[in-house]
C-alpha cells in the first residue's frame, strides 16, 4: 500500500511537470514514461513513505485539502498586512510562546506547524507531541497572551483544520 501512495504522488507530479505536451493535455509517450518512473519511485521510497500514509488515498481528504487552501490563503493575507503594519510602525513585542494543542498524529502536527510557519509573523520552532505543545516564535505578542490557553490566538482556525486533515 505505501507503494501505491508514493506511486500516485509521483505520477501526479510527473503529470504536472509534463502538462502541455499534447495541446494542453499529455502525449501518450509522456503518460507511459511517467508510469514507468512513478513505479520506480514508488518501489524505491515505499519503506520511507510508510504504512500510515495510506490514509491520504481517501478522496474526501483531497476535497478537504482543497477547502483548506482558501482558509490558509486568507490567514496569510491578513498576517501579511499585519506584518507590513508592524514594519512601518516598528512597534513589535517578539517572544517565544508555548501553545498547547489537542492533536494526536504526526501529520496533524506537521500541517499545523507548517501552516503557522507559512503565515508571516509566526514561526514554529519545535513540535513536542509528548507534551502536546508547539513552541512558536511570535513577532507581536498581544498584552496578556504570553501563555495562550489554546492555539486560537496564534493561528486562528488552523488547528481545527489540521485535526481533520491529518486524521
Amino acid at each position: 500500500m505505501p507503494f501505491i501512495v508514493a506511486f500516485v504522488f509521483a505520477y501526479i507530479l510527473w503529470l504536472v511537470l509534463t502538462a502541455g505536451t499534447n495541446g494542453l493535455l499529455w502525449s501518450s509517450q509522456e503518460l507511459i514514461a511517467g508510469l514507468i518512473f512513478a513505479g520506480i519511485i514508488g518501489y524505491a521510497t515505499k519503506d520511507i513513505v510508510g504504512e500510515k500514509s495510506t490514509r491520504f488515498l481517501n478522496p474526501i481528504r483531497w476535497l478537504e485539502w482543497i477547502a483548506y487552501a482558501p482558509v490558509l490563503f486568507w490567514g496569510m493575507v491578513k498576517a501579511n498586512f499585519h506584518v507590513a503594519w508592524l514594519v512601518i510602525t516598528g512597534r513589535i513585542r517578539p517572544g517565544i510562546v508555548r501553545v498547547p494543542v489537542d492533536l494526536e498524529e504526526d501529520a496533524q502536527y506537521t500541517i499545523l506547524g507548517n501552516s503557522i510557519t507559512l503565515t508571516p509573523g509566526t514561526l514554529t520552532i519545535d513540535a513536542c507531541p509528548e507534551e502536546k505543545a508547539l513552541y512558536v516564535h511570535w513577532i507581536d505578542i498581544p498584552k496578556g497572551m504570553e501563555k495562550p490557553e489554546s492555539s486560537e490566538p496564534v493561528s486562528g482556525p488552523f488547528e481545527k483544520w489540521a485535526r481533520r486533515l491529518g486524521k
Partner: peptide, 13 residues
C-alpha cells in the same frame, strides 16, 4: 517523506 518522493520525480523529469 513527501519531499523525497517529490524530488525523485522532479529529478527524473
Amino acid at each position: 517523506k513527501l519531499t523525497v518522493a517529490m524530488i525523485l520525480a522532479v529529478s527524473a523529469s
